[in-house]
Design a binder for these strands. Sequence first.
DNA 1: CTGTTAGCGCTTTCAC
DNA 2: GTGAAAGCGCTAACAG
Lengths: 336, 336
Amino acid sequence: MNGRPSRKVVTRADVARLAGVSTAVVSYVVNGGPRPVASHTANRVRDAIDLLGYRPNLTARALKLGTTGVLGLVVPDASNPFYAELGMEIERAASARGVALLVASSNSDLELESRLIGDLAGRQLDGLLVSGTAGPPVPGVGGVPRVSTPMVYLDSPVPVPGYTTITSNAQQGATLLTHHLQRVHGHRSVALVMGTHSLPWRDGRELGWQLAVRNRTAPVVRVPFTRQGGYEGGLQLLSGTNRPRAVLASSDLQAVGLLRAAHELGIRVPDDVAIVAYDGTEEAEYAWPPLTCARQRIRDIAEAAVQVIVDRAEPFHRVFDVDLVIRRSCGCTPTG
Amino acid sequence: MNGRPSRKVVTRADVARLAGVSTAVVSYVVNGGPRPVASHTANRVRDAIDLLGYRPNLTARALKLGTTGVLGLVVPDASNPFYAELGMEIERAASARGVALLVASSNSDLELESRLIGDLAGRQLDGLLVSGTAGPPVPGVGGVPRVSTPMVYLDSPVPVPGYTTITSNAQQGATLLTHHLQRVHGHRSVALVMGTHSLPWRDGRELGWQLAVRNRTAPVVRVPFTRQGGYEGGLQLLSGTNRPRAVLASSDLQAVGLLRAAHELGIRVPDDVAIVAYDGTEEAEYAWPPLTCARQRIRDIAEAAVQVIVDRAEPFHRVFDVDLVIRRSCGCTPTG
DNA sequence: CTGTTAGCGCTTTCAC
DNA sequence: GTGAAAGCGCTAACAG
């Protein structure tokens, strides 16, 4: 009395026997090839399949074919709404092509990340999409196991030879946001709440912001990419004596924390401080006030990542522009 | 020049050859059994493995063993923060036991849900955890394919013979929340923003609320389980002439939408309306004002679900209590 | 302690 | 149009 098979599982041989054909023929009808089958024979086979409730064993198929129809996704934090949305779009894109998605969280832990890559590679996945915690984990470099699975790096602004790299134009986004604050709302100084990480390059968001603020001095606070991080950064930034009148958060999550800090301190947004954020998840739309942000084209990224694996395309490097979406947290009053 | 294998992939036979042993011995050292191996032989084998960069083919292993070490999770909407958190906890629990997690979204579509169950079952997963869109999709019933994979139903308040069913005590949660509004804050009437779905039973949240409000009349509005749904429900509920002074939302997402509606209408929370919600995701904690809610024990649920599969335990039915977490949206002023 | 080997369920070449 | 059979990489009897 449990959920496991009562009668033993039916195999292709059972179907063949019942239909009075060879196992090869069953294969031909299941896969629609590679050899033709007389239609009445095919019907007998289909009847047998239905009758027995036969389902092909994809493991065996994968062993034979050397391809599993499964993609792996490794992200630093699957509960982060940005990665949740990304994961969902990837799953959608994969599913549309008949491939399944296996997910794993590295918890921003480099060692775990390496271990996951090794583990997943052993599962003969058709490809691995990874958003590395400290840049692209290249096989054979720095403790990352040598694996031969095709990989695509989801957050690498720099190309990696032999691999596909996809990223959003973070610098453009930060510049767009900062310029909006400066030119539309006349802010002279724009503070930055920046995430902490250990990327081997200058974060595009920071760069974009820096380019926009030029050499005007402006406060920067560095906190984790979490709501709590943003909250603490916000407390720090907003409770000082000369508090900024505008701030750019490097992620939605941080902006949400920032907003909470402002509210608790009785600081009005956008009247007292304008806040804008990079990412553009749905959560930002429903924050109060709704956040003006630079939105990543998540669906396009997902689509491109899945496609390069499924179509076995040549590796490429692609950076997607982001879209400025104006809401109220910057001081604008969009209609609707 | 691409990410795929340049030198062909190394198999157990290569290792055996290099180490000068049989393939069986390689198996013994890789798996630590079932037969003992002389330590110097084992070392030779390990050296060969390292040298060649050998990784066991888990597909072949799965075919032989009849077990893949992969769990499947199907949820209605993977980008819903509740399911995102649940997925993450399930992945954590699974990962701790060396099993991987495959995810799929049914988009609340019954037909797709059935298809996914069939597809995933064909992949020989060790188990399937499903949060059904319209109750537990029992194999062989109502278009759900007959599969023999063990399943656990993640949102079934009713037991299903032969399967494990796990759920949160939604009724208790709703009652707790409603009583809090009534007894602590003295609200005579508590409105309900209820999600729309097609469960074959009375939703526990609605039931718990109903029990608590007794036969006092109170407005109910039914909208989708989304931020937008909550927003629209909120507009409807709060812009009328005699607007409720207290409302219970059946999910965090809806409460967040509700909050936005209140803010837009210039209605103060909790001064003008108290709002409480069922779910307890992190997003609720960072809403403004922070939402008082009934929190599901997501980690316990995840742990239990994974364990019953991995340990091949007998099916059971288990309902987890929820925890009342008091924040400010109800009118309380918790310290800290 | 180590080696030989059958076979997991499937695909596909090759023969008929 | 159909069937026989090899073999994907691995495990675990069983034999030495």
